Amino acid sequence: MSKKRFTLAWLGEKEWLAMLLWFGLSMVVGIKEFAVHNYNNYTIFKHVYLHTINGQTIYGPYPDVYFDVNNYGVLFSVLIAPFALMPDWLGSVLWVLTNAAVLMLAIRTLPLGRIQQNLIMIFASHELMAASSYFQFNPIVAACIIFGYTLMRKEKDFWAACFIMFAAFTKLYGIVGLAFFFFSRHKLKLIGSLILWSAIWLVLPMAISSPEFVLRSYREWYEALVLKNDKNAQIDHGVVLQDISAMGFIKRTFRLPYLPNIVVMGPALVLFAAQYIWLKYCHDVRYQLLILCSTLLFTVLYSSSSESPTYIIAFPAACIWFMLQPRSTAANIFFVYLLIGTSFSHSDLVTAWVKRNLVVPYAAKAMPSLILWLLIVYQVLSRKFLRWPEPGTQFSH
């Protein structure tokens, strides 16, 4: 018998491999980080719940318990509650696996073939592992954005609004899910659902605290985010692991530490909005998926709070984009660049010297995603997607 030739389709058929990498890498790194007592983020998350039920501010410093501070909305206290009630060794690992599971479920709802979905999981598993090593919540944020799109596409606007507003009330930039508003066939129902879920998510934390505490927490959340943004801008003072964004990359590369973010974000917002000039294609799945990719990338690229593990929101977009491309050597080479330049740039694949002297000081992890985002905008504006095959048909033996 002749052996099957190695192709992306052959790799994507290995669902066991996708599941093993997706959950296995995250579980192993979660256990490893807990074993060496490197789970500060999880400790912060756990205490969001504990401080909420005790009526203590969830945004103040608690140096005797953990370093850094919480920057999530008070709704997060309800989400983390089941894990906070467990022993840390169990709660932390289940938290990591839950994040992985929710993002996997979101990927499974994408209007792509099963092989393409498996390939996204295989290629993004390393980025998920990086987020899991920090016990990050960002996989669920990415999942909420994807669910916002896929549920709207299936005309389940009520549930799409649920995920969009949940993301917004826990980590503010989840509101980008509104980018899919024009894909809805039931816009009035969607608007009503957004208002209803906003009220639900606003009130829900009051069940474990009080109305006064929740309203005070939202005021403090705003103040905490303003303070965090100011700190992220201080790259000349050594804050180099924050602001791994388009702004951070440009400021550090061109030695412009005091460049106002609006100088970069202003043109970016114009370019993002320009993609909607082709709304007559709003029900074309290729156009929809490009807007989804653009939204996921934009969320990370134009947030001064972006860190390396935040790219679990952006990198699935690179994988989805690659699944849409007609097969070509150029697309393959560029995706390899995205894989190395984004997912592996903070890993041991690059040398310590490169990481210390190039990747970290210049926020170089943002560059491949920035190039990809500009390419996607070009592909949308030039209507390149109209010449692409329907999703799910690119991979065959």
Rank of each mutant, 00 (worst) to 15 (best):
T342L: 12
Y287M: 01
F23V: 03
A161R: 09
Q325Y: 10
Y49G: 05
A81P: 01
L8I: 08
E220T: 09
R108I: 00
N229Y: 00
L289D: 14
I200A: 14
Y222K: 08
C319A: 15
L90P: 03
P391G: 03
W373Q: 15
F147K: 02
I200S: 14
F123P: 00
Q117S: 10
K355R: 15
K384Y: 09
Q325H: 06
V69D: 02
D230A: 15
W221Y: 14
I262V: 12
F137M: 12
L269T: 05
G12M: 00
Y222A: 11
F335T: 11
M129C: 15
V28Y: 11
W95K: 12
N71P: 00
M86P: 01
L215A: 14
N261C: 03
R5V: 14
K365E: 07
A268Y: 03
V285N: 03
A366F: 01
A207W: 00
I44N: 02
R255K: 12
P368E: 00
K3R: 04
S369I: 08
C144L: 06
L105T: 07
N138F: 09
G266M: 05
Q117G: 03
E223D: 09
T299F: 02
Q242M: 11
S303E: 01
V264P: 06
K228D: 09
V264Q: 00
Y42V: 12
I320Y: 02
H186Y: 15
Y362N: 04
L269P: 07
Y59R: 01
T170Q: 02
K365S: 01
G30A: 08
F272Q: 13
G113T: 07
D157I: 08
G177R: 05
G174I: 07
S2D: 09
M27F: 06
T299R: 01
R387F: 08
Y287S: 14
F181M: 12
I107E: 04
L190I: 15
Y276E: 15
L151A: 08
L25Y: 06
L151P: 12
S26D: 09
A246C: 13
S245E: 11
I333T: 13
A100D: 01
L358T: 07
K32H: 11
A207H: 11
S308M: 01
N118I: 03
H186I: 03
F166S: 03
H37E: 06
G148F: 07
M86G: 05
L269N: 05
K46A: 07
L225C: 06
S369N: 12
Y337L: 14
